[in-house]
Amino acid sequence: MHIMEGYLPIQWCIFWYVLSGIVWVYAIIQLKKILSEKPEVKPLLAISGAYMFILSSLKMPSVTGSCSHPCGNGLGAVLFGPAVTAVLASIVLLFQALLLAHGGITTLGANTFSMGVVGPFFGYLTYKALKGKINSTYAVGLAAVISDWMTYVTTSIQLTLAFPGDNPLHTFLAFATVFAVTQVPLAIAEGLLTMVIWDKLKELRPDLLLKLGVIDESEVPNVSVVTEGGE
């Protein structure tokens, strides 16, 4: 859920910029550490960011006939971890503002916090908690759903803080209900899509997932055959 340009008053713009700024600086330090050890991941990360952009601007067929956009940050968090996802998401959101006119520049801080920090973090936690216990496809699907829902809960909190009204709790419920109409089915749709993507990835290139350290070898017993097979 993007908060549109100009929606938040100035003090909340600054507040969310500072908050996501702290996470962002931490993530950049992590990223620098990774890049100084392995310079070859820089182009890879850039292209993965481009992939996240395509995924998040994808039109998903939904039940009502209207089209909606997935977030794509759940999959990102599972594949690359929450710190890298935060940096990639901040760039993706900047591009969405400047190339598609989604979101905004003053609200970039708030949007990064909900879509790049909180959502992926909970998605990552979900995946970590379920990893090895159930089939990784279901774990990823669930991570995508949870990360979507947490994103929209965070957005509701952000809007409530900016416009609390007489009773903040009621206002929060009102915002959450308005979003729930579109976000609850949308998150489930994104979870399903992520599951299909993951299934295919596991079938076609399990070596990539093993390299990233996101699945165990027990899940893909015949992996060595696939890797050596080549193209």
Partner: peptide, 23 residues
């Protein structure tokens, strides 16, 4: 859904290969 998932999975693999080539 099936096609879109297939497409995005393939795109991810292409992405990865392109990334390695770019390096």
């Amino acid at each position: 859904y099936k096609s879109l998932g297939l497409l995005m999975a393939n795109l991810f693999i292409r992405t990865w290969e392109k990334g390695e080539k770019l390096f």
